[in-house]
Design a protein around this nucleic acid. Sequence first.
DNA 1: CCAACCGATACCTTAGCGTT
DNA 2: AACGCTAAGGTATCGGTTGG
Length: 333
Amino acid sequence: MDKTDTPAKRSKPGKRPTISDVARLAGVAPAIVSRALSPQRRPVSAEKKERVLKAADELGYRQNPLARGLATQSIDLVAIIINHMTDLSDLDLFDSLLDGVQMLGKQAIMIRVGSNQRIDEFLRNSLSYHVHAAVVFSDFADAGEVRELFHSDNVLMLNGRFDAQSHYITIDEDSGIRDLIRFARSRGVSSAALLTGRSSSIVEQTRIAAYRSACAIEGIEIQREISGDYSYQSGLEADFGAATPDAVFCTSDTMAMGVMDQLRAQGKHPPRDYSLFGFDAIERGNFGAYDISSVGFDRADFIQAILSFLQEPEAFPETGLCIPTRYIARSTG
DNA sequence: CCAACCGATACCTTAGCGTT
DNA sequence: AACGCTAAGGTATCGGTTGG
């Protein structure tokens, strides 16, 4: 009697079939099934491979990624580390990114760091996967930290905190902001308020510096710099003082929406009474009532760059990638 | 008798090695 | 080259033991 056909080893009815079930049906050892189904070229005769494929199909066998990860110490899991997902522009971006990751046959795990400054402790307690790769949006993490935490060298930094060993994509915000300020000046803007996000972030610091420098070059006076937090609420509550400036520059579209509603309540409408500029260029179709002039980059290019990294990290340019931004004219400018 | 603790085992797959 | 056996990987759970 075939010793692999003991009742004890047969999986329970209703349970998802395992590699052993396939092996039993195909009349081969489990290791042969593993090889036959492996994407790598491993020695299996054509005849047995065929039997395995037929048996797997018949049973509806699906590989168990967790068990596979247990055996290989790696898993086709991509960790995406974000601060939070409250900004409207995040929805577009992450939806497309998750779609792309899944199209590559990988799964994504999103880790929300929130405002937790102690990312190290946070991640250590929440996760010990050896992931295939990590994509870092959150600016609370630096490259070395992430490599260590996820036991992976495939770390893509999108937050500016990369080091010599890491892969990174940066967004050239300067180009789009200069376009925007130049445009504003051409429309007669001479003074403005700047509503910023969390200024502890490196990306935000760079962004703020770009606004200041472009305004200085074009001769626009930043009368007021207001510290917000990217949220609609912080736009709604931003204090512009007695006189509304010619223009309001916001470092996120969501804050610009808040500003628009705040000033609308005072009977002021852009672009008639002031010019309003956001940042991120959220999909206009989703928020028709807020057709805010903005700075943005090509999301498809950005996503494609991330996916190319996930597909072949070794081939990713060592010098990193830079995605340019541009001014996107809509109706509030 | 019960709680606390500890070691053994099951889970599933694959890498590595020895055999045919 | 093809094949099959075995160990290993991390964690939850089970079962047994110990101490109070």
